[in-house]
Design a protein around this nucleic acid. Sequence first.
DNA 1: GGAATGCCTTGATCCAGCGCAAAGAACTCG
DNA 2: CGAGTTCTTTGCGCTGGATCAAGGCATTCC
Lengths: 254, 254
Amino acid sequence: MEALLSAIGRNENGQPALHRFFDHCAGDGALREELVRIAHVRGFSSGETIVGEGEESGLVGTVISGVLRVQKTMPDGRQQIVGLLFAPNLFGRVFSRVSPVAIEAATDCRLCCFSRIAFESFLARHPAVEHDVMLAVLDELDAAQEWMLLLGCQAVQEKVASFLLMILRQADAGGRPRRRRRIVDVPISRHDMAVYLGTTTETISRTIQDFARRGVLRVINPQRFEVLDVAGLAFLSGRVAEPGDIDEPSRKSA
Amino acid sequence: MEALLSAIGRNENGQPALHRFFDHCAGDGALREELVRIAHVRGFSSGETIVGEGEESGLVGTVISGVLRVQKTMPDGRQQIVGLLFAPNLFGRVFSRVSPVAIEAATDCRLCCFSRIAFESFLARHPAVEHDVMLAVLDELDAAQEWMLLLGCQAVQEKVASFLLMILRQADAGGRPRRRRRIVDVPISRHDMAVYLGTTTETISRTIQDFARRGVLRVINPQRFEVLDVAGLAFLSGRVAEPGDIDEPSRKSA
DNA sequence: GGAATGCCTTGATCCAGCGCAAAGAACTCG
DNA sequence: CGAGTTCTTTGCGCTGGATCAAGGCATTCC
């Protein structure tokens, strides 16, 4: 309980530990009381499964620290990560008995958990909070559609660049308001990156070494890079039409 | 108004014209009255844009008949369809000033439209309806994640098979409760299929001809096929582990 | 009817990126 | 400290599918 109360604040990295849809609770003593009563903080270590694919999904909640991967698997074992969840994102499938995706700890992490049933009944009693959950779901949908664009029509090089920029934004957004960081800490393994980007470990590795060779970034260690040329990386991501490169013919241009 | 009242029933194909999140309205005279007051039916012809990408999104609503494509475009013109909307799906981005995706008519279609603002205020006044909208959004998220699996790790052959099966399910689900149809009417062009599946027109064409050569389906005309072997198609989609083919080594097996 | 216009199909070529294999590099454990 | 384990990098050959380029086949419009 102590842990939860302190968690309803910021995690050790200064990121908000609960999603903004709890804002209604912060100001309202009774609501907050009710929330704390059904919440419990749990730690999971890297690789643990929080919710299995196609399983009864008993748990929902938010990420306090660490990273979760949301993934789907095909019958023959191929898998695709369809989302990464950082603090203070919501995890778990509300309003569905079974989860169509697996949720696993990509790193050691701490989660603020609720029983799905209890959480749903809490939402039913507080439409304003439910509304904010909907906003969170809509954001997740936006992110999914963004990622579909990446999976469907970007080359591997662009995918990796986009991924690194996403991590960079992620770090900038969450934590204390630092100046734009040039250091990228990739919180997941090459393998997870590959599964997220719909490619292979080897190709990820090659692409990153290639970026390093071209002077876009410097590899400090396999999980940590310094971005030497943010604009260059953005251009490699294909998401910006760099001035002066407007009519640069691209691999799949229309 | 006449048009709308008749639309709150079934469209010409016998599919429900309004999403189930209007169920609360059907039973409640006052609610229904209120809904009708803010709704208007509009026709769009194939290719017309309903909402532009990154634009102020004034309209939301449901599909009465026809198909909408939800798509995103990269600066260099490459595009990806991130969703197809059939009757009676919801379209438009509620609770956001700008739409991160474009919504276009993939065929001639009729829509039940609301001004986004009016619709949102309607939802605010009726939490039960808003709850059902959330369920619709969650379904859309599930569909998006499903499609990410397809885009990220299926071969073109599997993608095309999955697509055809989706259309088949779509036709089975919506309309009058017929016995499983073996006729697939693809409501969109080869080009749209390609953009949806993250591939090219030529490859789509080749794959379909290949299916025909293998006897899985028969091409009646470019937009209409008869599926001769549903199980075979399902197996080609890679989504089922066909009995007897359990250890069939697949292109990317783990 | 015939030219123009839009799909769709087919053929031929090429290369990005996958799969396999093996060699570092970092970490754990006895 | 050496053996085992796990993760990352590198080399190399192969191929699925993109690209480029014609060639059908309807439909529409003079």
